[in-house]
């Protein structure tokens, strides 16, 4: 293909890092809603929200990425994304712009990169002045390797 492929991402911030999710999979972005906590659930699960009659599981991306917890009282945003298993809301610090990139700026994560973040990103896009982590939504929503706060007796 000679024509550069244009891709659109919904950008957001987590602990100062810039992330992006494919715009086509973002259902909507909303402010914090009334949240129902789920006792005994994996720690990543922040709770359940009622999104106009649809019950959506909210995941705290900070916990998923093993970043320091959000200071209490600091507001966050819900990025509602579509998955095979219904809509999931990702809790992020702050929402960014819609970023349009060409696929030529993409690079897979370097081998020297470590930590949780590496597990859930496909790679990075080299923007003009910074890097945008491309989140793998399905991997981020998968629980198997997520830490749990309940004893699995």
């Amino acid at each position: 293909m000679t024509m550069p492929k244009h891709l659109q991402f919904c950008a957001f911030y987590l602990e100062g890092m810039l992330f992006g999710v494919e715009l086509t999979r973002v259902q909507e972005v909303i402010h914090e809603l009334n949240l129902t906590q789920v006792p005994l659930a994996p720690a990543v699960v922040e709770g359940l929200i009622n999104l106009r009659g649809q019950i959506v599981t909210a995941l705290d991306l900070r916990r998923r990425l093993e970043l320091p917890p959000r200071a209490p009282g600091v507001p966050c945003m819900n990025v509602v994304v579509a998955t095979d298993d219904g809509a999931v809301s990702l809790l992020v610090d702050e929402i960014g712009d819609v970023v349009e990139v060409e696929d030529s700026t993409f690079e897979p994560p370097p081998g020297t990169m470590h930590g949780r973040v590496r597990d859930v990103i496909v790679g990075v896009h080299k923007l003009q002045n910074r890097l945008m982590h491309v989140l793998d939504i399905d991997r981020a929503c998968r629980m198997a390797d997520g830490p749990a706060n309940h004893t699995t007796a």
């Binding site: 129902t36 659930a41 019950i55 298993d85």
Partner: peptide
């Protein structure tokens, strides 16, 4: 009754969720 998503399937103590009269979710 609305089923729980896979992230919560491991929590055997809940059978599902539902939306109450005030719009909040109850397990």
């Amino acid at each position: 009754v609305k089923p729980l998503r896979k992230q919560l399937k491991s929590v055997k103590i809940f059978a599902g969720s539902s939306i109450m009269g005030d719009g909040r979710v109850a397990l």
